[in-house]
Design a protein around this nucleic acid. Sequence first.
DNA 1: GTCCTCGCGTTTTTT
DNA 2: ACGCGAGGAC
Length: 749
Amino acid sequence: MILPELNPSQNEAVTHAGGPLLVLAPAGSGKTRVVISRLLHLFEKHGWSDDRILAVTFTRKAAREMVSRIAESRPSFAVPWVGTFHSVAARMLRQHADRIGLPREFAIVDGPDQRQILRDLLEAAGLSEKEHDPKSVLLRISQWKTSGVSPDEAERTSFGPFRADAGLYRSYEARLGAQKVLDFDDLLLRLTRLLKNDPEVRTFYRNQFEHILVDEYQDTNAAQEALLRILSRDGRNVTVVGDDDQSIYRFRGADVGHILSFARHYPDARRVVLSVNYRSTRAIVGAAKAMISSATSRFDKDMSSAGGKGLPVVLKKAGNESDEARHIGLRILEKVSSGSRFRDQAVLFRMNVQAQTFSRILTEQGIPYKIRAGSDGFFSRREIRDLLAYMRLCVNPFDRVSLSRVLNVPQRGFGDKTRNRLEALADKEALPARRLLSLLAEELPQKAADTARRFADDLSEGRVLAEKGEGVCPLLSFWLERTGYERYLEGLGEPEGTLRDRRENLRELSRMADRFDRSWKAVPERTPAGVFLEELALSQDDPGDTEAGETPDRVALLTIHQAKGLEFRHVYLAGAEEGILPLRGRNRVDVEEERRLFYVGMTRARETLEITYCLTRQLFGKTDSFKPSRFLFDLPREFTEGDRPSPAGAGEPSGIGRSVSGTHSSSGARHSEPMGVSRRSEPGSSEVPPKPKIVSRPEWIGRVVRHARFGQGVVEEASGEGGDLELAIRFEEVGVKRLLERFANLTAD
DNA sequence: GTCCTCGCGTTTTTT
DNA sequence: ACGCGAGGAC
């Protein structure tokens, strides 16, 4: 097959035959094209039918893009097995649900549901949310689950407050089981377990998929990696594509170690590096390359730009965040007057709060912009969650979270007392909602009992409607009408605007249901509502985001995380300050991940890149002064211009391990304002110290150790830096400490 | 059962 | 600054 438009390494990645393949695809290296070309190449070369290849992505957006790109190239292919890890797993699990005692219509609980379950469990256990923050406990539970630690083991190896967390883990699992629902982790874990225990199913899929391709492999977590391994023929028929430098999701379990050690885990894996950047100018690539090369754990890749030299990366110092925004606004207008559009430009920052200043200032300057809805997105709106809860109860009557949510919405006169009674009944025995309500009715006074029975009847009616399978709209309308939801909203006494928004959201939900019903094709043994709800559960997409067609001419205001995978002609990377980027959180920072984040931000730019930093900034209500980001010192003079920061020696970040700042600053830098002294590199010492070998040491995580002074603790993170093993250990008494294993003198416990 | 006030903590986000 | 949760008042 002739692929004339591909460069040699792209071509190698596309045509590689046999054996595991790792494609290292840095920003702008034509990754998507290579992925699509490879899939088409495999189809054509082998004459496989279109269900013989599995392609997994991390986001639905990426999956959608893959599907449409394939369709563009070869409309004849359907490629049914393209999806997210979770959607693919859900599909396989439903297929074989009977083998593991799951109903085919098992529901999937999302983040807010999980949090609600945990809150209920905390209350039942008499624990406070203060000491057991639901989010962190869930994170902990997720770590336990993904690393294969059972509640029993967790209880054995935990101590202090974690003992209680382990107890919560046990009851959390029990409650999910009783409700016949799975969380996101379960989708992967249960499938992996099924494949492990059931040779028939395992053989079935291993035979079905001639080839498996994984995109954004640097974002895989342990559960996904385990699934990939068992689903594939021991990795023989696997292609993974990714970029270790763009791994920015460690906080949610991604382990860059998977991509870094791919060759170790999959013997005779072939590695192809796509090293030509077709996106950005030489200046941008040069600056980004220099800055990421100071990272400690990465593949040493070469990168070159296929473009022209371009304009230098501009560094700009601003007095405060308003000045910063005003400056960027003016630059945006300059670009527009010289022919660029607003939508060619993007402002990138570390934290969502930073968007507020830009929003205010850009409005003043008359610049159109768009901000992606954050946590107040469509699917976290009360009206949406309420109606979805009603619908979910009809698909899965065991869903306690949904029942509890709508118990008193609209008001039925059920308060805490009634709720507790209901919870107690549900604890005793797993029963469908209508049975629970009938039982409850027996304990209630006449009037309340009638209400409970009416509610139970409504639920039965809704259930019948859902089972009939005539679509989502009838079910939605049923609940809207039966609950008098509009009247309920009116009675809330909220401001006019809020009420209007809520009504508009409900209309949007109806439209979504309508669109779904129109395109709905019968799936054996599944109800439309079940499929609809699964689609929503697996996509927390803002519906506004997915509206196709028009692309309004607006500047994009994005966090760097949101910008991943996107590109813009002109990028403004704002807030390049110590404490912001790298961010200094309450706990500690993972400077390496922050560096990659900075890198991802830089590499979004095609033509121009401007990086700004503020001397002072108002954050959390008070004004503080900030120092320029250490990463700015890694940008070579050759590719930059403007306000190069002068190294300030004082106030190095505390903690063990050398600071990055200064160590790698370009040796020839002249310091216009030599206020600091110490941090200059010796002239001629521009040699970067030899790259330490990797890196992530997952085998340490979860180990219980004893320290002479701090006592007993559990290892939360482990990474090798400069040949040393650095551990983050949570101690019972003193909290999290970061220690070098070499010096800490730890004993196993 | 609902409203109000006080105090605290504050990343990043997908499925 | 601001929102959220806990706890008290009505």
